[in-house]
Design a protein around this nucleic acid. Structure first.
Length: 493
RNA sequence: GGCGCUAUCGUCUAGGGGUUAGGACGGGUGGUUCUCAGCCAUCAAACCGGGGUUCGAAUCCCCGUAGCGCUACCA
């Protein structure tokens, strides 16, 4: 039996949790859970200049919100800690010294600014911008003398000849010529490791068995493989996940819509929907089934069904999927979410939110028209205002209808006389008006809808009346009728 | 420029030497209905191009093209 599966998600705290990162984390999580392995969270904070104080909290929060609990890492600890690279500095320095001592790495005294300039010049000439090994040619004595004098230096890995290949879990065999790889810096002048080196040292130390990461790391893999070999360490297996692109086919950016899981959460996306949607970005079960709970994903997820091509993020499909999940939620939960949304956005005065039973009735009436909490007011906002100001187009339609005023008036009268102001009596009375007018029910209902809600679209009209109550219903109908009479000529009889 | 990866409806994808190339989102149409949503039914919509291999290629191979990624003392 092979060693137990151990995977990791290794974000650097430089920003929010991007959906691409979230998808990578999800796939790692699913793979770990399915194999009964461990999901490790490691924070790659070796670049102090780029670390953002608040970023870590957001990333952790995002992972938790998605339900991706890590077995080892920040907040929970674990046997392979610490889980912040900034706390593992001695290990990198030691590993680098070993390579230096064995002649597998060398000191580089070149000035970073100078290097940068040379690289740009090479690029401008159309040449590969590789390090020219100036410092590799230094004698051992000179190198040591300069170091002893206190001259700053970085440590570079001496890239061996030959080629490097591996059997990728999603792409099959991938091969690189080492000549196209650089003598990469493994330890910077400030004694901090660079990404490729730290990742190798830590993945080995943490006994990571599978590295599942974004496609953008594919060219890092041969470098890391060479590093494992030089260090005498057994490499993990690698799997490169396809990128997630924006609607325009380029890297998903804020310009194209929400990109961080926090934004989606604030937009009323449910974590279950996000997880399900993300799972389908670059992976499919059989091409038919689309709805999966996390547990079901854990059961059926396999790396060999991960797609090789980049996926464009489809906001509409996420919205649809969210609707699928949102509608399935119990009324209580939906009401909770709507209440939380209204409170956070202060879309309604505090007082309006106090009547919880009313809110629940309204949410029930809106029913499955709502795919996200934010749509509540779209369908029920008129319940929370003293007087509706009808939208332009619906009102114009009413004005153009010569019979509208009379029908509204009649309906108002009938409704004010209905004994029990409940759904069925209201419906019966309303339909009665239509019959006596010799028209279809819709010819009475549509004007009423506009008078009552100001819109052409609303929940069922009898639910609306019920929610409004007899008084407000009758008043709105009469008010609309009066206004109509004032604005439009009476029907020629 | 170099290196690498990829290529099926607009999008996510299934399939993979012989299929009416399947599903989902989105779109169209019809039904249910007081509108919308939902639900049901239904339609349109794809194998990047060129060469091979083969009786047969969307599927295997090569070339081209395109897209994306990497090419840092970033991760």
């Amino acid at each position: 039996m092979a060693s137990p599966v151990r995977v990791r998600f290794a974000p650097s705290p430089t920003g929010y949790l991007h959906v691409g990162g979230a998808r990578t984390a999800l796939f790692n999580y699913l793979f770990a859970r399915q194999h009964g392995g461990a999901f490790v969270l490691r924070i790659e904070d070796t670049d102090q200049d780029r670390n953002v104080e608040e970023a870590l909290g957001g990333i952790l929060e995002g992972l938790k919100w998605l339900g991706l609990r890590w077995d080892e890492g920040p907040e929970v600890g674990g046997p392979a800690g610490p889980y912040f690279q900034s706390e593992r500095l001695p290990g990198y320095a030691e590993a680098a010294s070993c390579l230096l001592a064995e002649g597998k790495a060398y000191r580089c005294f070149c000035d970073p600014e100078d290097l940068k300039r040379r690289r740009e010049e090479a690029l401008a000439r159309g040449e590969p911008p590789k390090y020219d090994r100036t410092c590799f040619r230094l004698s051992k004595e000179e190198s040591e003398a300069r170091a002893a004098k206190g001259e700053p230096f970085a440590i570079r890995f001496l890239m061996p000849e030959g080629e490097t290949a591996w059997d990728d879990e999603v792409r099959g065999t991938v091969t690189f010529q080492n000549a196209t790889l650089d003598d990469l810096v493994i330890l910077r002048a400030d004694r901090h490791p660079t990404y490729n080196f730290a990742a190798v040292v830590d993945d080995a130390a943490m006994e990571i068995t599978h590295v599942l990461r974004g496609d953008d790391h594919i060219s890092n893999t041969p470098r890391q493989l060479r590093l494992y070999a030089a260090l005498g360490l057994a490499p993990p297996r690698f799997g490169h996940l396809p990128m997630i692109l924006g609607p325009d086919g380029t890297r998903l950016s804020k310009r194209q819509g929400a990109v961080s899981v926090g934004e989606f959460r604030d937009d009323g996306i449910l974590p279950q929907a996000m997880v399900n949607f993300l799972a389908l970005l670059g992976w499919a079960f059989d091409g038919e089934r689309e709805i999966f709970t996390m547990d079901e994903l854990i059961e059926v997820f396999t790396l060999d069904r991960v797609s090789k091509n980049p996926a464009i993020f489809n906001y509409e499909k996420l919205d649809w999927m969210n609707g699928e999940y949102f509608r399935a939620l119990p009324l209580q939960t939906r009401a909770d979410m709507v209440a939380a949304y209204l409170k956070e956005t202060r879309a309604l005065p505090e007082s309006a939110l106090r009547d919880r039973p009313f809110l629940e009735r309204a949410v029930a009436a809106v029913g499955d028209r709502m795919k996200r909490p934010r749509q509540f007011l779209e369908y029920a906002g008129y319940l929370y205002v003293d007087r509706v100001e009808p939208e332009q187009i619906p009102w114009a339609e009413l004005v153009a209808n010569p019979f509208a005023a009379a029908r509204l008036k009649k309906l108002a009268t009938v409704l004010s006389d209905v004994e029990l102001f409940e759904h069925d009596p209201i419906e019966k009375a309303t339909r009665g008006v239509a019959v006596s007018e010799g028209v279809k029910a819709g010819d009475v209902i549509m004007p009423a809808r506009i008078a009552l809600t100001g819109k052409k679209v609303s929940p069922g009209i009898f639910d609306v009346m019920l929610l409004l109550g007899r008084e407000r219903t009758v008043e709105r109908l009469r008010h609309a009728a009066d206004r109509l009479e004032a604005e439009s000529p009476a029907p020629t009889s």
